[in-house]
Design a protein around this nucleic acid. Structure first.
Lengths: 76, 76
DNA sequence: ATATAATGTCAAGTATATTTTACATATTGC
DNA sequence: GCAATATGTAAAATATACTTGACATTATAT
């Protein structure tokens, strides 16, 4: 629970590497559901998991987890 | 448990702002023991708490929590 | 249309982050 | 020396990250 905002940056970085949620989850050693929940913003990973995700996706903490979400499309 | 390495960067950033562990803990809304444990590397905060710490200390995630610890003094 | 892979979600359990209380050790100032 | 403040630790309780298993939905392709 506790909505955090969907993390589209992870999704995008995954796309860059053509990785599936499952593949990323395995690469960082968590369940697929956990990866999905993080992308959905359903919770709040530990810094350790964040670091692992960054490492696999070749991004920095600031790039993937910095600040709060950038706002979505400005609806028309 | 699970040693992560002491986070001297937080300690240093705190010193820059002349903040005590207690003050920082209150500013980010956790207990003093939690802040202490994080600095001691005794565990593994959530990204949310990390963000809060960064905000209060005026540092980025990469600055305070990026990569693993830089090695200490190169022993002589 | 129907397989198959990728994703979203839920519920029940386990692991662990965080709190509270409490005490011990520095450290600083009187 | 003694008081006060800052820090380090520990044990028991609580909150929540994360797992497992299962099912529904949305692509993509044949």
């Amino acid at each position: 629970m506790i909505p955090i905002g969907r993390n589209l940056r992870i999704k995008a970085a995954r796309a860059e590497r053509d990785m599936t949620q499952k593949a990323l989850a395995e690469a960082v050693g968590v369940s697929r559901q956990t990866m999905n929940a993080i992308e959905q913003g359903d919770y709040n990973p530990t810094i350790r998991l964040c670091r692992a995700i960054c490492k696999v996706l070749g991004k920095s903490l600031d790039e993937l987890f910095g600040e709060e979400e950038e706002h979505e499309g400005s609806k028309v």
